[in-house]
Amino acid sequence: MVELETIDIEIRLLLEGIFIRYGADFRDYSPASVRRRVVLAMEKGGIPSVSQLQERVLARPEAFDSLLQFLLVPTSEMFRDPSYFRTIRETVVPLLKTYPSLKIWVAGCSNGEELYSLAILLREEGLLEKTILYATDINPKALERAKNGIYPIDLAPKFTDNYQKAGGRAAFSDYYRAGYGSIILDASLRTNVVFADHSLATDNVFAEIQFISCRNVLIYFNRKLQDRSFRLFADSLGFRGFLGIGSKETLRFSNVYPEFEEFAAVERIYRKRRAV
């Protein structure tokens, strides 16, 4: 019993230390998920206690960087939940086409699967040229992978299947070339992409956005940080802007809920109401 209560105290101290030392703020992440990830990092690294982990992390930036890879889990796929992208294509895109230029934000882009999925969709709809895509994350390694747009080739069948279910107009293979056991995505897809370090926990509005996609990111936060993120999204969206979140997430419990309408309820795509 004592051991287990100690570990929770130690994890709080670890997160506080990381915030003071590196400015990365995990203090309002979901305690159950963080604990699970920290324990995994300790097991993989053969580190016997959180205190020892803390000592290493605070002393050596490389140790922090490797812990970061445990705390931030990149497990997405291209066109994950194909119906989300199909709905964007069928119901959001026609409205986006009425804008002279667009800004789209993929918040918590991780390795970039969601970013490139949107870029392909926008290209097929003739919107990519007039769009600036912001792809943000707090994990420098993930941002690097997102910039490279290279994924293991064994994922290609899944991506292809998703692409087709998402209503893709061409062949998914048109967007990559294979090599060295990888698929290398067409670099022209990221011509208009701005990759940036941005934290939903500590950073603020940086542009006026028409569409924000942030799926399966906020589930790792506690309700306080979820609220902060939703506030940030509401403030970042321009007039009648769109917000897409994960299919198992909801805006319903958030303070900003009254500022939005459910645009595509099943796919959890919300639209900002006219200001009252």
Partner: peptide
């Protein structure tokens, strides 16, 4: 638990979902 998600319980007895591996 929703298909495709891990289901966890927080110490404050709320559910949390995750897409961990």
């Amino acid at each position: 638990a929703p298909p495709g998600y891990h289901l966890l319980v927080e110490p404050d007895r709320r559910f949390t979902l995750s897409v961990d591996e």
